[in-house]
Design a protein around this nucleic acid. Structure first.
Lengths: 202, 202
DNA sequence: TGTCCTTCAATACATATGTACCTAATTTAG
DNA sequence: CTAAATTAGGTACATATGTATTGAAGGACA
């Protein structure tokens, strides 16, 4: 039945399977699992797979290669869950609940997203691999100091930085002390968008 | 649509592949495609697959069985224009075309949001005031070690922590060295949800 | 302690499977 | 219409792959 607990070896294999399938988008072969687990024989994998299947964590088409699937936990269709999500939750948490309306964000036409490479904004809690939702900027002169923008600097490429205006100059600051600010004439900088939200998938 | 246009035969195969993969959650074998197309020889499938690959509709791991993947196309949501450098160095926009599909997240029934108070998760770049999208958990025994969960601990209230299982115990760790881990019997902890995404409005 | 279950190694086997090659029929493009 | 590209049939082959078997070692637990 689903939810039976796993031994250490079984858990180890299952965790690896989740990772593998998540980024390869297909099932590994038994011998791939064998190598990944550091084993020299397929039998232990067969055993672990059999137990994982009996306990309801995975399934596959017998005799067919690479057809293993994770049995995902069903979110919808469980009556108890609906009750918790709807009413119970509010009572469980003391704080006042607000509504996060992602649709309203989507309706802001022109939003675009960028994948963040590197850690120069780490002190602003924008991490490597995050997605930043950007709102197009038409009039850079109206940007408020400190706004996070994506800007193209000739010779430096496009980067994510805090934007500051300083007379006729523009200063672009990273949120990481390891990086020096960039100062440049305003005309030289092309601000493409300003930060609307940070999105981190997990 | 990905890539160049397809011939009738190629389109027919592609359409069937979409159905099959959506349905079975794994790639069919070449001979399965053969049968489905009503053919008596694998060669035509090989040909169609080669063309589908050259035109950018599919890809697979050569020599490995059932590793075919569809090269997905944008459905709806926010276009991901590329990667941006948050490091010092140059990294202009790539030609990578992805889509941040917020709708798909919204469609996951039961998602709920919490406002983060405090900085106990700051080392995981979840800051005070952020919104975390949580996916309800109805079977805590399936949680993977390290997962960020919202859990209610009797006497301590509801907090956002990294979840670890240690025998019959559950360990809840903050992402901030100023906070001590909590160790408690699994039965005492009520895990309400696991982290689906971090949302930071600006 | 002793028993049962799990894990691991080593080997073996049948076949599922991707791939290659050749030829002919069919479709498409010019 | 002609030539090229695509599609199709047939066959063959190496091997990737799931599966079975046997034996031994390790671990949990009463």
């Amino acid at each position: 039945m689903p939810g039976e607990s796993l031994t250490t070896a079984q858990q180890e294999l299952y965790d690896w399977l989740v990772d593998f399938i998540e980024d390869q988008h297909h099932s590994p072969s038994i011998r791939q699992m064998m190598q990944a687990m550091g084993l020299r024989s397929p039998a232990p994998i067969q055993s672990r797979l059999r137990h994982l299947q009996e306990k309801g964590w995975i399934k596959w088409q017998e005799g067919q290669a690479r057809t293993l699937q994770l049995i995902e936990e069903s979110i919808s269709g469980v009556p108890v869950l609906g009750a918790i999500a709807a009413g119970g939750l509010v009572e469980t948490f003391d704080d006042v609940q607000e509504t996060l309306d992602l649709n309203s964000v989507l309706q802001l036409k022109g939003l675009f997203a960028l994948t963040v490479n590197g850690d120069s904004m780490i002190d602003s809690f924008i991490a490597d691999g995050d997605m930043v939702l950007m709102e197009p900027v038409n009039d850079p002169s109206r940007l408020r100091n400190g706004t996070v923008v994506s800007a193209m600097v000739p010779g430096l490429g496009t980067t994510l930085k805090h934007f500051f205006r300083d007379g006729s100059l523009v200063r672009l600051e990273a949120a990481n002390t390891a990086y020096e600010p960039i100062e440049i004439e305003a005309e030289q900088v092309h601000v493409q968008g300003k930060l609307a939200a940070v999105w981190r998938k997990t």
